[in-house]
Design a protein around this nucleic acid. Sequence first.
DNA 1: ACCTAATCTCGTCATATCGA
DNA 2: TCGATATGACGAGATTAGGT
Length: 262
Amino acid sequence: MASKRRNMFHKNKKQETTEDEGGEEVQSVIQANQQSVIQTATGNLQPVLAKGNVILVSKPNSVIQTAQGQLQTLQQVVEAGSDDSLSNEEDASTKKRRDILSRRPSYRKILNDLGGTKVESSGSDCDSNLDMIPAGTLQLTSSQGGEVQGLHTLTMTNTTTAGSTIVQYSHGQDGDFYVPGEIVLTQNASGLGGNPIMAEDQARKRELRLQKNREAARECRRKKKEYIKCLENRVAVLENQNKALIDELKSLKELYCQQKAE
DNA sequence: ACCTAATCTCGTCATATCGA
DNA sequence: TCGATATGACGAGATTAGGT
């Protein structure tokens, strides 16, 4: 039962809204079934837009002008959004999956590639291009302020009992407390020939590594949320640009028809 | 109020990526 | 090349929403 639920969760990762640690709700701006922006004589350009395709507008005095960077971005978004390998996710074993799935570039790298925005260890500047959004349109704000991460330290204290350790956990704000239980390192488990000092050292290193990784995971999740917000912001910007271009095109067409009729 | 399914959050592991 | 860091995947428990 529980595992079934978990599997469902991993299958249904796409959500309309999500809530972060601070209780902040992030509304998705990605909407399906948007009216097609670019239309051809046959009515729809969709079949042409396969993965990796780029629309090139090279006509010098065209109404529709694009900056090179925007086209690049569009291509990257299209490519990032289509991951064929995920469709077989259910059937593969864990090991196999890890072999098949290739890791994407880090969020830091992606964000740098996208807009030159850097992911800092705290705070967000991904909204830097939001001033392109016309007044009255959706703006997503990214607030990171709610969560204060204190400094954590972990110390292991030797006791007279061989192989056991008291773990002292120190939090920056709440003060220290001691974990009453003990970490027992047996000879077999440590594989260190029964040397309690080395075993304790190993355990200490492991605890340190786990602690670091724990915090790294938190930070990584925070960055991931920020990255998603950035993408959503970008979608909002591009949708508005599309809308403006459509309006411009429409008015120019009308103007042209009027002049032609005269 | 209770149950169940869906969703969220966190810790851990494995491994890719980065920087010295 | 190697140690440190970042991140995807997974499992477990907590929380939430909807139905009875």
